[in-house]
Design a protein around this nucleic acid. Structure first.
Lengths: 228, 228
DNA sequence: TTTACTTTGCGTCATAATAACGCAAACTAA
DNA sequence: TTAGTTTGCGTTATTATGACGCAAAGTAAA
């Protein structure tokens, strides 16, 4: 244990963040290239230590703001990881969270991104430091199962979107093929997305085909029942 | 903030436990009557602080062993609660877990139970100290949803049980009526429970009607799909 | 503009899953 | 012995689902 931790009587508390972004049928995660030991020059999830008087969500916001310049996004606590040897510097317990950012925010991030920050497709991750591979895996697992019973996938899309975009998102995240017409029927029958009345740029005769999430429905009835 | 915490640079880490027991169509939770301030003489969930070098599950085991004299049981991490004012003594972050104990263990507990420990039916809880009402509520919520897609309810029953007992358990936990015959068909079709070949004491001509959980099936396919 | 190709919205149909409920044999208690 | 309850096993109508057809709308190249 290094000097940094020797004065603590409790384990240190940290948060780690799995930030998901989606673009053109690709789900990606944001990783950080470490400048310091341990895992110097290696990739890890962004994270940070909890200060006294700071809530977990505040730490998350602080990290996201500092590293990405982003304010509001979908954020959810995932799990608390406490293996005694998960951090070579000493006992650090990490409350992992995952975040979903939409295309607009993704663009902001891309514009101002430091060169130690990088997007990686979830299917092509580099080796990760600490126990971050496990944390990432569990996040992806959660995301996969959650989109089936909670309309959380919408957070990865623009405010308005086409059904095809939503369909592609689901296929990408779940990694399976979903019949386009059955998906359409299910999602429209549920009334969780509704037409905006608008049509895509350039379209002339087609019915309205831009949709948005219906915020007036209780989100807890959402149920897609797509086999995994 | 009291002296006890003033030397820490990090928030303290604790665990709180929601211990569920089931008996005769009643789901109960184990509560502790506090001897000390804060909430002296009030009821709270059992809990304890994390020592350096101790894992979260170890703390849970330690508490359960000390307070209840019980060793092995179903234990699952629930959520980490971090509201800065959740503990009047100072900043304490609690990783809540919930546990399920079976009738045999419940009997052991009942036999050796200190008078500061008591079972309360989940529908008749006393006022709880700290933010424990919220923790309890979230545990019950989790239990309710989890038994629908994971065979976790079995942990509250004996090794062998009748379908009726299982049916009653589900009705009790979910707080709804479930058609006996449809429940039977679903649970038997799924093959998650199988006949033991034995019959209940005293029965003569009836088919085997004692069942046990089928451990040979992958538990992740369990799906009951009962409307809530 | 014509032509060939792709995308999208809407519909059909066979099958599976589900909810509601009937019934008689096994069991229990008076 | 009798009356009432519990339990196992069915049936049926309705709904949900998966698989797929098809034509209008849209796109891109000649």
């Amino acid at each position: 244990m290094t000097k940094q931790f020797s004065s603590y009587k409790n384990p240190s508390l940290a948060v780690d963040l799995v930030v998901f972004g989606y673009h053109q049928r690709e789900l990606s995660v944001l990783l950080l290239n470490r400048k310091d030991e341990p895992f110097k020059n290696g990739w890890t999830l962004p994270g940070g230590f909890l200060q006294m008087e700071e809530s977990l969500l505040e730490v998350c916001s602080r990290i996201l703001k500092t590293k990405l310049g982003i304010d509001k996004l979908y954020l959810e606590q995932l799990y608390t990881f406490d293996e005694p040897d998960r951090d070579p510097r000493g006992r650090v317990i990490s409350v992992a969270h995952y975040a979903l950012i939409n295309p607009r925010q993704l663009a902001v991030v891309a514009g101002s991104m430091a060169n130690d920050v990088q997007w990686f497709p979830v299917n092509a991750l580099p080796r990760l430091g600490f126990d971050h591979k496990r944390i990432f895996g569990q996040s992806l697992q959660r995301l996969k199962s959650k989109i089936l019973y909670h309309p959380v996938g919408f957070e990865l899309l623009n405010d308005t979107f086409t059904i095809t975009e939503l369909h592609d998102l689901y296929e990408t995240i779940l990694g399976i093929e979903i019949d386009r017409r059955n998906f359409r029927r299910k999602i429209l029958d549920s009334e969780y997305i509704i037409a905006t009345g608008a049509k895509r740029e350039g379209l002339k005769n087609r019915h309205p085909d831009l949709y948005r999430f219906n915020k007036h429905l209780k989100q807890n009835n959402f149920q897609l029942n797509i086999p995994s």
